[in-house]
């Protein structure tokens, strides 16, 4: 049984005086216990909104949420705020992109962790403090006994992100959602955080949803990868299938357009033309059609469905031919 099952999730933002904006449209995927699932996409793809909707963090923001999010047989979307808060503290953890703004600047990091421990794991203040120090040690914060009484601004970006991970893990959640956890960090620090995350996840058998724009991160970390474009999933596959033979022209195009460290100098890039602002509405056809090299009339008139194809899920009328789909470098 899946740990988390997202069915037909949609998020529509409605604001007075503006047209309703569909950020997420019919997104379905599931996460098995202990599995690492990637949600990849560029800005505006709806990947972050998806995670916020799962966590119930969009409720008071004028968003209309449809579909269902089932976590261990509980429908999260219909829970009361209190029940959801409880669930969020206990079973679901989240790590955000900007560790500074996610931490309370006027409370010591120790207190921010013990607060969670006391509330959700019913620990006494003393126990919680011991456990907090242990957690901080576990996420690789040096000298946790001393650091526990410091404030967020006294830590570097990487250390703050570690603290955030410690808070998210404090209740031993079954699912951790990491939304661009390393985007604000330098590459060597990113490597530290990613290896920490994958280590913790495999040690504790926590499921992880990794949300990122960086295909490289996904390639090393995730079992299943969902590629999102314009609020919908356009391709889902196991990571080897996805990277070795990407079938959706968008995925394929992305892989062709990003410079790779292991490609020799001067190897040409094949960019995707246009920008996200060229998209058409999904109701009219395929949102990617204006930028797609494979687009034909049907792409401009008929929205493609997400269908099983070639051992994966694919939303495309004219996928990349299997022979061409082999991405360079994987040879």
């Amino acid at each position: 049984m899946a740990l988390l099952d997202v069915r037909d999730l949609s998020v529509v933002f409605k604001r007075k005086g503006t047209r309703p904006f569909t950020a997420v449209d019919g997104v379905s995927f599931s996460v098995e216990p202990g599995q690492t699932v990637g949600l990849v996409g560029e800005s505006g793809s709806g990947k972050s909104v998806t995670s916020l909707a799962i966590m119930g963090l969009l409720r008071k923001r004028g968003a209309e949420i449809g579909g269902s999010v089932t976590f261990e047989d509980t429908e999260l979307l219909t829970l009361s705020d209190k029940q959801l808060r409880d669930r969020r503290g206990r079973d679901l953890g989240m790590v955000f992109q900007d560790p500074l703004s996610s931490l309370n600047p006027v409370i010591t990091i120790g207190l921010q962790i013990t607060e969670v421990l006391e509330r959700h794991r019913g620990m006494s203040r003393k126990e919680a403090r011991v456990e907090a120090a242990e957690l901080l040690d576990r996420v690789g914060l040096p000298d946790p006994q001393r650091r526990i009484d410091e404030y967020p601004h006294q830590l570097s970006g990487g250390m703050r992100q570690r603290v955030l991970i410690a808070i998210a893990l404090a209740c031993r959640p079954k699912l951790l959602i990491a939304d661009e956890p390393t985007t604000a960090l330098d590459v060597t620090i990113q490597a530290q955080i990613l290896s920490l995350l994958s280590e913790l996840v495999s040690e504790t058998d926590t499921a992880l949803i990794m949300i990122t724009h960086d295909l490289g991160i996904v390639a090393g970390l995730c079992d299943d990868v969902n590629v999102m474009y314009g609020g919908r999933i356009v391709e889902r596959a196991q990571r080897h299938d996805l990277f070795d033979r990407s079938r959706h022209p968008y995925t394929h195009g992305l892989l062709q357009s990003i410079p790779r460290l292991d490609a020799p100098r001067g190897e040409p890039l094949t960019p995707i033309r246009g920008s996200v602002s060229d998209n058409i509405e999904w109701e009219q056809g395929c949102a990617f059609a204006p930028r797609c090299p494979n687009a034909t009339d049907v792409c401009w008139s008929e929205p493609p469905e997400l269908k099983a194809d070639d051992g994966r899920m694919l939303r495309c009328h004219n996928p990349v031919a299997i022979g061409d789909a082999v991405t360079e470098g994987a040879l």
Binding site: D278, I280, Q284, P290, A295, T296, D297, W300, S301
Partner: peptide
């Protein structure tokens, strides 16, 4: 082709 070209013209 017709839909394609009009849509594209719209874009432009």
């Amino acid at each position: 082709m017709s839909i394609l070209s009009t849509r594209k013209a719209d874009k432009i």
